[in-house]
């Protein structure tokens, strides 16, 4: 078992922020008592400007805390040299690397920097770690290619492999998926989750991909603008309302029932959807997109839409005693819009 003193990372009344030259310090968050457990993936979420990067930079030792302390495996970080910190913590940043003529292998080999001699020669075990790291991110076939020729997603895999080759207890990633397309984001997040579980490293990721974070993270650190960080499993934070509070904003609300964000509309018209399966799911999505609310009980809605399972792709619409049939969702929503406009100011 991990005793409190050798946790990969533990903070004690940590205060983060900026201390500009000749000016009073700007505190972004304080009284932070955080821990990272071995083998867990934690996602750091919060709106822009809440201080995610500042927290990551402080935990990486790139920025001095305004108060409190950070312990790496029980050792006070402020007493460690950059060289020692590098053996505990590695980072992946948002910034793109495109000036260097390096192969993927050479890039990952740079991660051995804290362990090699003054000429940076790779010993046999260093080379083995580099190969292992490249293999772990599934990029072995690309290792001899120039990094400049790789796609953004492939390059990010090598940056993760480089961080892995540094053999840290903790990996800190600042928006590692920011430049990637959706499939690549999903791939990278699941890759990181797998690496955390299989290598026993604590991985902290700051990200704007709320949906992906909810699905992949073992734990979330929520950092809303108010400077109070909340930590917990994604589900706990959703159920106790912390998630909603952290991301509430004009016109957008988080829907606990579906775990996704919705455009907020005032007094939406309620409709029923009767049926199950894929067709019903997408019908509900379409109706919500059009600004209708799906009624919780079958009798509450103004209109009732029945999915007809026998006739593939058909909808039956009952409204005010009139019944009509539709062949497509486009057709259905057009009819619905004409009969009960979303904008109608009825009190139901």
């Amino acid at each position: 078992m991990t005793t409190p003193t050798n946790l990969p990372l533990q903070t004690n009344r940590l205060s983060i922020g900026y201390a500009p030259w000749h000016r009073t310090a700007v505190v972004i968050a304080d009284e932070l008592d955080l821990t990272l457990q071995p083998g867990e993936m934690v996602c750091l979420l919060g709106p822009n400007g809440a201080g995610k990067s500042t927290l990551i930079r402080t935990l990486a030792g790139m920025q001095q805390p305004l108060g409190g302390r950070v312990d790496l495996r029980g050792q006070n970080m402020s007493r460690l040299s950059a060289h020692q910190i590098a053996q505990h913590v590695s980072v992946v940043l948002t910034t793109r690397i495109d000036t260097a003529l390096l192969s993927g292998y050479e890039l990952v080999a740079l991660g051995r920097h804290p362990y090699t001699d003054w000429m940076g020669r790779l010993r046999r075990q260093d080379a083995a770690v580099v190969h292992w790291a490249i293999d772990a991110v599934g990029a072995t076939e690309l290792a001899t290619r120039q990094v400049a020729e790789l796609s953004d997603g492939e390059r990010q895999k090598f940056m993760i492999a480089r961080a892995l080759a540094q053999e840290p207890a903790i990996m800190l990633l600042d928006e590692p998926t920011a430049f990637l397309d959706l499939p690549r984001r999903v791939e990278i997040m699941y890759l990181l989750r797998r690496l955390a579980h299989e290598t026993g490293k604590a991985i902290l990721i700051s990200t704007h991909d709320l949906d992906l974070a909810l699905r992949t993270a073992d734990r979330l650190w929520l950092l809303p603008g108010d400077g109070v960080l909340r930590s917990g499993t994604p589900e706990d934070l959703i159920l106790d309302g912390s998630f909603e509070v952290a991301f509430q904003s004009e016109g957008v609300r988080f829907d606990r029932a579906t775990g996704s964000f919705r455009l907020r509309s005032e007094n939406p018209q309620q409709v029923n959807v009767i049926g199950e399966g894929v067709q019903a799911f997408w019908t509900r999505r379409a109706l919500e997109r059009h600004g209708y609310a799906i009624a919780a009980t079958p009798t509450a809605g103004l209109a009732s839409i029945t999915i007809l399972p026998d006739e593939d792709g058909a909808w039956q619409l009952d409204i005010n005693g009139e019944r009509s049939y539709h062949r497509s969702i486009e057709d259905l929503t057009a009819t619905l819009d004409a009969l009960i406009p979303v904008a109608a100011s009825s009190n139901r």
Binding site: A82, H83, V91, L93, I97, P114, W118, M119
Partner: peptide
């Protein structure tokens, strides 16, 4: 020649170099 290893680390920029333990 003696600082060729630090120069290699700097290829990734000063932030990465520092994170790899380089005394920038």
């Amino acid at each position: 020649l003696a600082i060729s290893k630090p120069l290699n680390a700097l290829l990734l920029g000063e932030t990465y170099a520092r994170s790899m333990g380089l005394n920038v």
